[in-house]
Design a protein around this nucleic acid. Structure first.
Length: 110
DNA sequence: AGGTTGACAAAGG
DNA sequence: GCCTTTGCCAACC
């Protein structure tokens, strides 16, 4: 049996795994889909094991900006990976969620 | 058993 | 547009 920290976390990381490349999702959106507060989504990402097949870099806050925990090297890493997938940042280092924001079932907006 | 903190969001001033 | 307060649910002290 697996060593899942919490069923909710398993659901969150599974949801994040469903995010296609070149797309991003906000914590509040994930929290709303999995049925929990946005903080739990952040905690799920924070407790993710190293080497997890979860594209946490595709998870950003509602403003389309990178999270505080990734501040520093994390910001550069997250931004670098997103740009590698085709995501473009604006002059303020934020992403246009109206264009890159993704949703399960509402996908389809190249 | 209780209080604080946290990779956040929404509403109010 | 900015900052402050409240709510989220689980983990940590």
């Amino acid at each position: 049996m697996a060593c899942e920290r919490h069923a909710l976390y398993g659901r969150i990381d599974d949801w994040v795994r469903g995010i296609p490349p070149g797309r991003v999702a906000s914590y509040g959106q994930i929290g709303a889909f999995v049925g929990c507060g946005p903080r739990q989504v952040g905690r799920a990402m924070a407790t993710l094991p190293p080497g997890a097949d979860v594209p946490w870099h595709r998870v950003v806050n509602s403003r389309g900006a990178l999270s505080t925990r990734t501040a520093g090297d994390g910001h550069l890493l997250q931004r670098h990976r997103l740009e590698a997938e085709g995501v473009v940042f604006d002059g303020r280092g934020t992403i246009d969620l109206g264009h890159y924001g993704w949703s399960p079932g509402g996908a389809g907006h190249p």
